[in-house]
């Protein structure tokens, strides 16, 4: 069937308008639900890093649970000074965007958790690169700012069964109780050791066999990100 150019032009314009309008309506309608999902996921991640078993908790209750445990949050700059103290503002900070800025303009979040036994834990966000794409997570330090209390990692597209294991409990479990400073107070971070870490190594955990690059990515992520918090950690550690 032959159609005139005018017909084709009008046809395409009408089509584009209809499609654009309907897509925008759908996107705008669903946006709140999507944002809510992202918000809940972030809360789940933070809670998971302070060893709250989030898998057993229905999504509806996450928000209340978050308010119960995470009592406050601050954002710190590279010198360790608190630049934002409003917890809702801090929650909204996107670490990805902060890390793109020059060092002295970053404000990085610290979430402060009040644990069931009355202790305090400090949750720091992590962001790094795995084998295929971004990896991220949260790590929580005990109030001595040295011992790791808990952690969680996630990834976008690591190989299932290999790199993707960083999200699994068996990988995360050994991090607990490790320290990030040696006896002399020197920053050592955490080493992820291929072939398995010695039982008495206070800074080492097992790597994933077959997932070496992702494991190394986690190691570098922890080193880099904790590095950005150096000043903050040092000031509080000596208190």
């Amino acid at each position: 069937m032959q159609h005139s150019n005018k017909y084709i032009l009008i046809y395409s314009i009408v089509m584009v308008v209809i499609v654009a309008v309907s897509l925008t309506i759908v996107a705008v309608q669903l946006k709140p639900a999507q944002d809510e999902n992202i918000r809940i996921e972030k809360m789940q991640n933070i809670l998971s890093s302070v060893n709250i078993p989030i898998a057993e908790i229905p999504k509806k209750e996450i928000s209340a649970l978050y308010d119960k445990y995470i009592t406050s949050a601050v954002a710190v700059n590279v010198k360790g000074e608190e630049v934002i103290t409003d917890a809702t503002q801090v929650f909204k900070i996107e670490v990805v965007n902060e890390l793109k800025k020059p060092d002295d303009q970053q404000s990085l979040p610290v979430f402060i958790a009040r644990l069931d036994n009355g202790d305090t834990a400090y949750v720091l966000p992590l962001r790094g690169k795995g084998l295929w794409g971004p990896i991220w997570g949260y790590i929580s330090l005990k109030s001595d700012f040295n011992t790791i209390y808990g952690a969680m990692f996630d990834h976008k597209g690591e190989t299932p069964g290999l790199g993707a294991e960083i999200g699994q409990q068996w990988f995360i479990e050994p991090f607990k109780g490790k320290t990030i400073f040696d006896q002399n107070g020197k920053f050592t971070s955490i080493q992820i050791i291929k072939g398995g870490a010695a039982d008495d190594n206070p800074h080492g955990v097992d790597a994933i066999s077959g997932g070496t690059i992702t494991s190394k990515g986690v190691e570098k992520m922890i080193f880099d990100n904790l590095g950005s918090y150096q000043a903050f950690i040092q000031t509080h550690k000596n208190h």
Partner: peptide, 13 residues
């Protein structure tokens, strides 16, 4: 496909 993607993101994140 965009609609399906948006719906998935909203309901089975």
């Amino acid at each position: 496909v965009i609609i399906v993607d948006q719906v998935l993101k909203a309901f089975v994140y």
